[in-house]
Design a protein around this nucleic acid. Structure first.
Ligand SMILES: [Mn+2]
Ligand SMILES: [Mn+2]
Ligand SMILES: [Mn+2]
Ligand SMILES: [Mn+2]
Lengths: 152, 152
DNA sequence: GCATAAGTATAGCTATTGCTATATTCGACT
DNA sequence: AGTCGAATATAGCAATAGCTATACTTATGC
């Protein structure tokens, strides 16, 4: 069941080796989703209140505190955050870099959806998931569109 | 920029109870991603070659065959597919319904990205992930934009 | 200074999604 | 019919991401 030339009836399917690239990219993006959301949220909490506590992270993510504790340990192992026991968590240089990048992309995606005519509430909700699957090229298209709409 | 009263320094953070809604929606979408991709792919394989075999599903998703076998068992338990041992897998009525809906949304997202000026290759890759996080309202905006561009 | 509340750490559980290795079955060809 | 390669089934492992329950530490109020 491969059919390189052209003999099959319906043709909604592309080449398997091309098809698999999309799924691989989506899986990779899914793998990074949580990390990006965490560092972005930590950066926001520090910027807003000077510190990022587990309870606040847990409340905003909608998960239990031990879930946050476990993830912070992993982020620390990955060199993205530095945590002091029974204290808040802080971003390392690479953590800050990833946070800044994630936040900027998030901002652009949300602004783009609004520019397209989506309500602010829906734009906020959908952007939280969409942001992680937007490539540099698509992000550029989003940015251009949103800029064009606000200037016009 | 929320701060109903006004006391904290920076204000990039919204109300926690509003914030958590976005994360919950994204988590729920992530939970359904794989199921949607599977039924959509199975529908395409059946439409293209008359059957959906584990090897072909695995090759297109870029995962190992036992990974597919395990997922098919779960889809069968959920009543989305029907599998005959050592034979291909087929969609139930609800499986077909979910597949049709997922495929349509996928198609609209990819077409939208192309209409926005993104290259077909990037549109294909990004759509594979973005599709799962697009709400009905956003999908409608995508559809309108793409229709407008093709008519103009 | 101490009691108590709040926050954090830790243990242990489950479900999901991937993998490799191997046994079994099916199908096709001689 | 028997053989052999391809496909499937199954077992067992690991990482991720969630949970509850509970112990421990810190901070606050009196
Ligand atoms: Mn984000
Ligand atoms: Mn997000
Ligand atoms: Mn799809
Ligand atoms: Mn997809």
């Amino acid at each position: 069941m491969q059919e390189p030339p052209s003999s099959t009836p319906e043709g909604s399917l592309i080449d398997p080796e091309v098809h698999v690239e999309s799924f691989r990219q989506a899986r990779e993006a899914r793998r990074l989703e949580l990390v990006e959301d965490y560092v972005e949220l930590i950066a926001d909490l520090i910027g807003d209140g000077g510190e990022a506590r587990q309870v606040d992270i847990a409340a905003r993510l909608g998960v239990a505190q031990p879930t946050v504790a476990k993830m912070l340990k992993r982020l620390a192992e990955d060199g993205l955050v530095q945590q002091r026991p029974y204290r808040g968590v802080f971003l390392t240089a690479s953590g800050e870099a990833l946070a800044a990048q994630s936040r900027e992309r998030h901002r652009i995606v949300e602004r783009f959806l609004c520019a397209l005519g989506v309500s602010p509430e829906t734009a906020r909700r959908d952007a939280e998931g969409i942001e992680h699957h937007v490539s540099a090229e698509t992000l550029d298209a989003f940015r251009r569109f949103a800029d064009g709409r606000s200037n016009a």
